[in-house]
Amino acid sequence: MSNIAEWFNNSLLGSTVISIPSIWVDGVVALLLLIGSGFMLIGSWGLVKLPDFFTRLHAPTKASTLGIGAVLFASLIWFSVRDGGLQIHELVISLFLFLTAPVSAYMMGKAALHRQQPNLERTRNVHLAELAAKQQSPAANDKKSDKNSDKKSAFHQTE
């Protein structure tokens, strides 16, 4: 078994340079890596399995974000212990992903509402979907209303 592992490490993947700082750090990093990759697998499986776009939107945006948070946290712990001092590169990446995942999920959901994707039979409050698809930004509503007469309507007329 060790022979096969040695062959696998040397021939296929190149020499490994992972050095073990301590057994506890090793265990914590391994646990976080397994949790993270498991959650990413669950998120992608839900992307394949779920029946509807609006339910499908839930799986990657929650589970995959949690999974990549765990993987990045494992990498942060390992490099911080190896090099000494706090390495904040991964923290920057995970903060960026945690900020941008809801924004991109909202934009994809709005695009799907606009394209009138079919949703499940048991979806609640379906009659609100048409209203939400037509909803515009506040600036567009200001252009339509007659209250702002001066600049915007003049600009609108010249258009």
Partner: peptide
């Protein structure tokens, strides 16, 4: 079935590839 599903799959794909590149960095130290 629709293009929004494909955009969602691309979004998940780039998040997975970030995890893959982090794992590569951890592997090579």
């Amino acid at each position: 079935p629709d293009i929004t599903d494909r955009i969602l799959a691309l979004d998940t794909l780039y998040i997975n590839s970030i995890a893959l590149i982090i794992l590569l960095g951890l592997y090579h130290g």
